[in-house]
Design a protein around this nucleic acid. Structure first.
Lengths: 219, 219
DNA sequence: GAAACTACGACTGTAAACAGTCGACTTATG
DNA sequence: CATAAGTCGACTGTTTACAGTCGTAGTTTC
């Protein structure tokens, strides 16, 4: 009986605010809303077909995620990232993922971890020939999984707060360069390091991975 | 001529939203709004004498800072932290401040850094006999300064996003325990380590500091 | 023609009203 | 008495309307 009504398997219909949030995030990280662009509330609310009040709630969140920057008198514009900011973002990202990796090394039940990570890598391999967007997606999914598997909700939340900025960094740097670091092999190195349980080695692997990624982006 | 009108030295009058934000943050981290307490928008908006729309914008931000947790149907309540969550928060905090310390070690101009940190420590010493609130304040100010001096805005922002949770952790754990780690000496160790420029030593000092702090809180 | 002054327009800040939904309490019914 | 149906109240989700502020273009004045 239960289940016939179907659509309540966790996919509860999102509020307009959440829809707007997703739509705007996508628009920004895809470049549809270019960095530096001024956002006018009345304009956006009309585009998204929602009221300004609802929109403003979404804008606040985007602002705190670092995708928007506030000018004088509350004017919002899409954040523009220079090379230093990209390096800074990746430094923080490295610190977070380094913690994630170390935590995973010290975890009791590493069986499940290993399986999940290998699954994520397999997904990457499957997407290896896909579009740039698909590859970015599976790349981020891998790193997000890294954080999620620690069971540290705060860590996951912090990482996700940074995710928008990371996407912008990749976007901004132009598609040509950022690709090289998304190969499957480089990620397999990370998983292998975790498998050894050597926290020092794992940390080093992650930091190098991030350094390379950031260096590629700012070429 | 310019400057006579006076009050525009960066202290532009805050919007109602920001005022509400501060008021709520204080109310929560001070325990006035106890963990687990249900928040009713109409109630709060009346207390704060602001409209619900304005209030909701502030609530969104508090939610993302981890001070509020959302129940079914958007019901918000003050987040309750258990021991594991406190440890998790301090683990992330340690990762961030560890990055900060390492960055400071590698910084070219360490003169300014040293001066600022010593000033922060002096402030702590001056508050050593003050109330618990004052000591917590100068303690957090020291650690915030650590992040700010790196010049990494993303790092500072991430830390500040965590600040509310840190305050809640200290609050929650009860006033009796969390004090021991806020001595001036333990912070001087950190500054000394940075002064040596030894990134490894500094990292170790920070991690130990955080470990001790978290351990004290969850006793 | 340049400087001050005024009127308009474009936005954000804020408030108030409307709509929908879920739970609790009551009432009818077997 | 238990249970099902119905009603009321309390909230959140969302929209609409109003107020205030700054820039800008057009106009006046010397």
């Amino acid at each position: 009986m239960a289940g016939l009504t179907a659509p309540l398997l966790g996919l509860q219909k999102k509020s307009l605010r959440e829809q707007a949030l997703s739509a705007l995030r996508t628009a920004i990280t895809s470049g549809e809303l270019a960095p530096g662009r001024h956002l006018v509330e009345t304009e956006l609310s009309e585009m998204l077909q929602i009221s300004r009040g609802t929109l403003r709630e979404a804008l606040r969140q985007l602002e705190q995620e670092g995708l928007l920057s506030a000018g004088p008198r509350g004017r919002l514009s899409v954040r523009h990232l220079d090379h230093k900011e990209i390096r800074d973002i990746f430094a923080v990202r490295a610190a977070l993922e380094s913690l994630a990796a170390r935590t995973l090394c010290e975890l009791a039940d590493r069986q499940h971890v290993t399986e999940s990570l290998h699954a994520a890598i397999d997904a990457m391999a499957a997407n290896a020939g896909g579009t740039l967007e698909e590859r970015i997606e599976s790349d981020l999914e891998f790193h997000r999984t890294l954080c999620r598997l620690t069971g540290n909700e705060t860590l996951l939340h912090s990482w996700e707060s940074l995710e928008g900025s990371i996407r912008m960094s990749i976007m901004f740097a132009g598609q040509e360069k950022g690709v090289s670091n998304m190969s499957v092999d480089r990620h397999r190195d990370i998983v292998d390091a975790i498998d050894t349980g050597d926290a020092g080695l794992t940390r080093k692997t992650i930091l190098e991975h991030m350094d390379t990624a950031a260096a590629n982006l700012v070429s």
